[in-house]
Design a protein around this nucleic acid. Structure first.
Length: 253
DNA sequence: GGCCAGGCCCCAG
DNA sequence: CTGGGGCATGGC
């Protein structure tokens, strides 16, 4: 492992994923079909021998090099980096990310988490202790728009249906250049530039991605009025994550 | 009890 | 292509 330091609270609750729970220091979720349970103290032992978890938590990411680069850019970036130095960008299942960020539009994080949970309980597989895996596209193959509306998916229900129908499109993404990959994703209904870049960043680890939500627009206007994502290259995605989390938890934008 | 939420679709200019 | 209204739902 290149980087055994990770800020679990920041990483798991910064809005890049929606399936984790933390109660009294115990973290739980389902990763790659199995229930994972650990505390700050048992985290590294939990990873030992589990290559898929090491990858999921991005423990081999080049964070020291990236952070050194970003810190040098400007004082705002330096502060954001240092405040959340252990923030990792997870390597999540692209399908799960696609669904989550379709759900995210005009929505709040608390409710996205609730909708995520309902999907697992309705269509996922039981994995013990009352937990369910996130449903695969195959497991959702036969759901109807009305099923999804009954689950509280609202106007996003037809978007989810299109994502289910077109899920195999995800397989082509890794081999495509960034812009082509983004436009390919945007052929799915309910996937625009922001959701598409979230999928590329959180599902495919494309560091060029720079999701511009309402928070990031305010941040850019306030601190980087003449800049765009290129300013943070080649770590735009990570910079976005630091700034987003920093603005939401620390500094009034 | 309104307000608003990690936007996108759709339709008018 | 740019701008603005509408959108289901529930936490606050």
């Amino acid at each position: 492992m290149k980087d055994s330091h990770i800020d679990l609270l920041a990483t798991l609750f910064c809005g890049q994923c929606f399936g984790w729970k933390e109660e009294q220091g115990v973290f739980q979720s389902v990763v790659n079909g199995r229930l994972i349970t650990f505390t700050e103290d048992t985290f590294l032992a939990t990873l030992a021998g589990n290559g898929d978890l090491i990858r999921y938590f991005d423990m081999d990411g080049e964070y020291e090099m990236a952070k050194a680069h970003l810190r040098k850019l400007d004082p705002t970036m330096a502060k954001a980096v240092d405040r959340f130095a252990g923030l990792h960008i997870l390597n999540q299942d692209p399908w799960e990310v696609l669904v989550c960020f379709i759900l995210s539009q005009n929505n709040n994080i608390a409710r996205i988490r609730q909708m995520y949970c309902r999907l697992t309980e309705a269509y996922g597989s039981p994995v013990g202790a009352g937990w369910h895996s996130f449903p695969t596209a195959a497991q959702m193959q036969d759901v109807s728009e009305e099923d999804l509306r009954r689950l509280g998916m609202g106007f996003r229900a037809p978007y989810l249906l299109d994502a289910i129908a077109q899920n195999s499109l995800l397989e082509e993404i890794p081999s495509l250049p960034f812009d082509e990959a983004l436009h390919h994703l945007m052929t799915i209904r309910g996937v625009g530039p922001k959701v598409g870049q979230c999928i590329l960043l959180y599902g495919f680890h494309r560091m060029e991605a720079f999701p511009m939500d309402t928070w990031m627009k305010k941040i850019m206007l306030r601190w980087y009025p003449t800049k765009d994502s290129q300013y943070f290259a080649p770590y735009a995605g990570l910079a976005q994550q630091y700034l987003f989390h920093y603005a939401r938890t620390e500094a009034p934008v």
